[in-house]
């Protein structure tokens, strides 16, 4: 059997910027309170046009679980590793809090967790995947912006979405090879 490669496909047209994903993530993963502490977020892109001709779109984002993760490359203690299923992890006890990885991440997807004294980030809710559940942000989303799955499985919903729709990744030019795909 081919190894898994987890990914999330997002249809941001459906996003209403309700922040359900952000709160679900904070509760699920015990992300400490505080505006600087987050594993995922919804960005409101700059307002387009001027009154009364306006447009606005919302882009949920998080760790891109890059196949070529700059955060892992810069870590002096190898605290950041990539698991066989493609999930980029921080091993808490190896982290010395130098925050190089936070600087290296082009997506600003990491924060320093004072409670565990380590850099923290999205894990695709590993603890849920292990028991056959989907990440909390995916599950809770009112309009189901995110779809989670294995892109190495051609029959998975994520593979089919990518086969049927054009998509893009964020900051492609940086060569990070993200595993979050945004439908166009």
């Amino acid at each position: 059997m081919k190894t898994k490669r987890y990914a999330i496909v997002l249809d941001t047209h459906r996003c209403i910027d309700c922040k359900a994903c952000t709160v679900a993530c904070k509760v699920e993963n015990n992300v400490p309170l505080g505006k600087e502490n987050y594993r995922n977020w919804v960005g409101a892109d700059p307002l387009r046009g001027s009154y009364p001709n306006l447009g606005e779109s919302y882009t949920p984002s998080q760790c891109q679980h890059c196949s070529n993760p700059p955060c892992a490359h810069v870590c002096p203690t190898s605290a950041t590793t990539v698991s066989p299923d493609g999930i980029v992890h921080v091993i808490d006890h190896k982290c010395i809090g130098c925050k190089y990885c936070m600087t290296a991440c082009p997506y600003n997807a990491r924060y320093y967790n004072e409670e565990i004294e380590a850099v923290d980030k999205c894990t695709f809710c590993t603890q849920r995947i292990q028991v056959g559940r989907i990440p909390a942000c995916v599950e809770t989303c009112p309009t189901k912006v995110r779809v989670f799955g294995d892109i190495n499985d051609p029959n998975s919903e994520v593979s089919q979405l990518l086969a049927e729709n054009p998509s893009r990744v964020l900051k492609e030019a940086q060569g990070t090879k993200p595993n979050l795909y945004y439908l166009i």
């Binding site: 359900a20 709160v23 679900a24 699920e28 599950e139 009112p142």
Partner: peptide
């Protein structure tokens, strides 16, 4: 520990919003 949406709950299409998640 966590409030999750009930997947059987057809009225809300199995979702829980920010407030619902913040219920704890």
């Amino acid at each position: 520990e966590k409030l999750d949406p009930n997947p059987n709950f057809i009225k809300s299409r199995a979702m829980l919003c920010a407030r619902g998640n913040a219920g704890i």
